[in-house]
Amino acid sequence: MIDLLATRGYFLVAFLLMGVGTYMLIGSPNLIKKVIGMNVFQTGIFLFFITSAFVEGGSPPLLSAPPPYVSPLPHVLILTAIVVGVSLTAVALGLIVRIYDEYGSLRESEIREVAADE
C-alpha cells in the first residue's frame, strides 16, 4: 500500500482530483460550482498526463540543458487541452450569465421551477 503510494502517488492524486471534480459537477446545486467542478475534473486529467511524462533525473526539455530530457510531447498536448478547457469555461460562463438574466437564479432547482411554469 505504502509502496503503491510512493511510486504511483501522483496518479492517485490525479484520479482523486477527477473524483472531486465529478462530485462537484453532480452534487452542487449552484451552476457556477458545477463549472468549477468541470474545471477540477479536467485539471485531474492534465495532471495525469503531465506526470506520465516525467523521467527520473531528467532535465527540462530545453536545448540549453543536458540530456536526458523530460518528454515534451505531453506538455504540448496539455497546453492545447488547457486552452480548450479555458474556452469551454468561457462559453459556459457566458451561458450562465444569460440563464441568470432569464431565470433570475443560479440554483438548479429554482431554475427548474421557473422553467416548468413557463
Partner: peptide, 12 residues
C-alpha cells in the same frame, strides 16, 4: 432561456 439551458447541459 430554454436554448441557454439546453446548451449548458450539452456543454457539461
Amino acid at each position: 432561456g430554454r436554448s441557454a439551458r439546453a446548451a449548458l447541459k450539452y456543454l457539461i
